[in-house]
Nucleic acid binder design. Structure first.
Lengths: 163, 163
DNA sequence: TTCATTGCAAAGCGTTTGCACGTTC
DNA sequence: GAACGTGCAAACGCTTTGCAATGAA
């Protein structure tokens, strides 16, 4: 599996779950969504995970913890969490999407090695400058972005198509 | 359908197909792939298209032109063309991939409006600077990147999840 | 002749949908 | 009580795979 190298240590996860829960409640109330126990259980499970995860992994984890949950509910809840800015979604390959908790975790982009199983995370302030330029040029408000660089360590004869 | 606004006009497509064909032949020979008529027909069809397209669109277009082709061959050939640097692949949503001819067409990134059907293209030199920094920092060679900004024109109450 | 490539159809797989039941408001 | 949310299974849609036939080297 993919080894992830983080360029900066993340702060120890304190009791941020209370904060996160409040934010989620506020979002649900403001948008007239119901506060079901499933939604809070899913949020809690996600904030107990580190790094990227996919729906299947989350599903298995919850099943192992004896929570009765369906994939459909997981997908629905992810949308709510993304809109609450509590989770970010990445689509690196063409396969499954990867998700990641985002509250109090620094926004970062990715550098993916094509000839090894490594993925690096980085944060470059120049991306914010580009964003400002675009907002001024196109007269829009940018909500988020996705930036991924792909690299090789060794020179390869023919690039393997990423599965 | 998505309206695409280009920030700079592309040069008129001259007889670049000869160049492109030579590059493809060279790639096929260097990698011991066969030079089948299907591959060249697909290449020609792609270079007759403008902007983004998906496999289904290309498939229909070729069927309409009375070419006997299968989707499987289209997918296989796209991989070869991507490795030849004659085509780039975008994965904006989580649905189908979009492809685009790339030879002699300026590398660009995208700005996607979430509350309209517009997509802008832009090219910012600062992205190259970020790339250089990353190559030095991680001691790798970057082959390509994907950068997409998402924006809104109007303030929206609840973000619609992109289909 | 050999075996990579092709078209076709079926399979694969992540995600979405339909529906009856349960639960929040 | 009304209607939103849930679990389950089936459906969906893009992509890949299996296989016999074709044809490039």
């Amino acid at each position: 599996m993919t080894k992830i190298i983080r360029t900066e240590m993340k702060e120890k996860t304190p009791e941020i779950f209370d904060d996160v829960k409040k934010i989620f409640i506020s979002y649900l109330e403001q948008n007239a969504h119901r506060k079901t126990p499933e939604r809070f259980t899913i949020l809690k499970e996600i904030y107990a995970l580190d790094g990227h995860f996919d729906i299947e992994t989350l599903y298995i984890k919850m099943k192992n913890n004896n929570f009765r949950v369906s994939r459909a509910t997981l997908y629905n809840t992810m949308d709510l969490l993304i809109n609450s800015n509590l989770v970010v979604k990445h689509q690196f390959g063409q396969n499954s999407s990867l998700y990641e908790k985002s509250y109090k975790f620094k926004q970062h982009d990715h550098l993916i090695c094509l000839d090894s199983e490594e993925m690096f995370e980085f944060c470059d302030p120049r991306i914010q400058e580009i964003q400002k330029s675009l907002e001024a040029m196109f007269k829009v408000q940018i909500t988020h972005h996705s930036l991924t660089f792909y690299c090789v360590k060794n020179t390869e004869k023919e690039k393997k198509t990423k599965k």
